[in-house]
Design a protein around this nucleic acid. Structure first.
Lengths: 356, 356
DNA sequence: CTGAAAGCGCTAACAA
DNA sequence: TTGTTAGCGCTTTCAG
């Protein structure tokens, strides 16, 4: 043991036993019409009996095709990624591709190593499902000379091919939902300032309010970083505002979770005293207290779409460089009407214009 | 585009430009001492300038080594897995191995496909980090003829090589902690009946109580499935018990989350009225309300250990077939002393005997 | 329909 | 120290 167990059987072995040439075996095994169906069948049976397993390396050496897609992610520990990866994998498998995992944990050295590994194994394409691609990563990846599709990329610069959830539309959805509930004093606890998704959600927030003739108090917009702490600080800050908001739109669910906690800590009931809405619909959103109403990103679909896109790129087809997938509202229990009968004169018509 | 972009540079190309034979290039590139240091350096520089990237397929064809490890998991969507995978990957990378992802989503057909893919790419070893390996999976995997290491396998049959968290010890830790807090009426909401981990935790629970001279009321042990519903039913059942427990040990954190929710639903305060302890320490445990006290499995370490084990197996070393890693208590806020001054005559000495 | 021969990019004897 | 040669397992012309 430790060494290769007794050498694998090759097409030559089969050829010898079948009394044919190894090219015939090769043809038979791949179902070429250029073989007598009877011999083909005989060969196939023999191969099965002998436990033949094709050698991908040998094959790809001659075909110059590897059927491998590199999957780049910063870390699997991101609960958000799982569904995306599942979508990617499903489509990849259907199309006969395999996935090579390259995680970097945001370590530049490992990024390099990962890219090198992808290069050496001659992946035919790359999917980057990393929310934050290192600044250096992309150029290296591009040097691979294979098609790349980015999922939810966070950089402002529109990259060649990408699929993303429509953050803007999602924000519109969130805010117009709150308005429909009767809220007019709506706060936004923001995400990482540099993140494209944050800008878009912010913009969706602003414009939805504006469309209803509401100008949010500047104090209702607080900075954040996408983590629970941000939600906690955010609520504290909001509490100090001269006029308190009745609802909070959070950049993402993790932020909302922090907000939920902080609200409880100061004795605010959710949703009776304060409505909180998140974004992402992470697995955990269903289990918060109260269960979190949120905007779901179509994660699985995003994975599938990205991989389909890559497939078409691989086929040499032209594809539109960037796809936006719509988000959807998941109503749970963290939102309700505002506490005191705040003026329910919300013209949600305008805001709803952009919804399906 | 779509086709291979202008053929990669090979060692022959470099050889031609350097005016040496391709074997010299091969040697130089791999740092063989059999080359003139000066020419070696010159070749290396040239290679870099020409953008040379070794072809893993070609290399592995001749060396019969692929440096690929198959990583089998049912689904990435299991929040538990991420840290394990991180540990695996870290060690793999350090040792120059890459990871081939094979997920099955518990679909038998895909399992087959996944194993076939592993076989064709001639992985040198396999790590199975799937909590529930399909019954059929393992035999197929074994047929690969390469070393396999299982992480937290759930089957009773002890498999060849495995690393797991010490569920028994973890349960002892949990229950003796509750006893130290003053509890004597401790319930157990179980996990999947067939799961090995459930049996072990159950046993740890029973024996820790027994060692303190406590025989749990049979009504305090309720069946479950490891999911939040189980925690909810469990609490309901427990409420009907003639004598109510003051603390609940849950099979895992997901169960505990359900228990937390159910407790709150019936107006029980945690931990004032009821203490709840989980198992696993998933990412989310820190964000429940109240934050969940739990038993942490050394996930990252388990990943590292499994991969190290595989590495040694690959080297032909003998390794002990099954390793147990100790769990540790993470105190957060879901446990406290029992409500009424329940008799604090807990002889925790016995129980503590097995702790570090 | 089948076989012979070449060659994918690389490593590893064996000579020089 | 270097070059020549063979061959890993497979696919793919090109001739039969």
């Amino acid at each position: 043991m430790g060494r290769r167990a007794s050498r694998r059987v090759s097409i030559k072995d089969i050829a010898r036993r079948a009394g044919v040439s190894h090219s015939t075996v090769s043809r038979a095994l791949r179902g070429s019409p250029l073989v007598n169906p009877r011999t083909a069948e005989r060969i196939r049976r023999l191969a099965a009996r002998m436990g033949y397993v094709p050698n991908a390396a040998a094959r790809s050496l001659v075909t110059t095709r590897t059927s491998i897609i590199g999957l780049v992610i910063t870390t699997l520990a991101d609960p958000f990624l799982a569904e995306i990866v599942r979508g990617v994998e499903e489509v990849a498998l259907e199309a006969g591709y395999r996935l090579f995992l390259a995680t970097s944990n945001a370590d530049p050295e490992r990024e390099l190593a990962a890219v090198r590994a992808l290069a050496e194994s001659r992946v035919e394409g790359v999917i980057v499902a990393s929310s934050r691609v290192g600044e250096l990563y992309l150029p290296h990846l591009e040097a691979l000379g294979v098609p790349i599709v980015l999922i939810n990329q966070q950089r402002e610069a529109p990259f060649i091919y990408s699929v993303a959830a429509d953050s803007y539309q999602g924000a519109v959805l969130a805010v117009s939902y709150l308005m429909r509930l009767g809220h007019t004093r709506i706060a936004y606890i923001a995400g990482p300032p540099m993140a494209r998704s944050n800008r878009l959600r912010w913009m969706g927030y602003q414009e939805t309010l504006a469309a209803a003739g509401i100008t949010p108090d500047p104090e209702w917009i607080v900075e954040g970083n996408g983590r629970p702490e941000a939600g906690e600080w955010g609520i504290q800050r909001l509490l100090e505002a001269p006029v308190r908001p009745t609802a909070v739109f959070c950049y993402n669910d993790m932020t909302a979770i922090g907000a939920l906690r902080a609200a409880r800590a100061v004795g605010l009931r959710v949703p009776e005293d304060l409505s909180i809405i998140g974004f992402d619909d992470i697995l955990f959103a269903a289990y918060t207290e109260p269960p979190l109403t949120t905007i779901a990103q179509p994660k699985y679909e995003m994975g599938r779409t990205a991989m389909s896109m890559l497939l078409r790129l691989l086929q040499g087809e032209r594809v539109s460089p960037s796809l936006q997938l719509p988000c959807r509202l998941v109503e749970r229990a963290s939102c309700g009407p505002p506490p005191e009968g705040s003026i329910p004169m919300v013209p949600h018509l305008l805001a709803e214009r952009r919804l399906p």
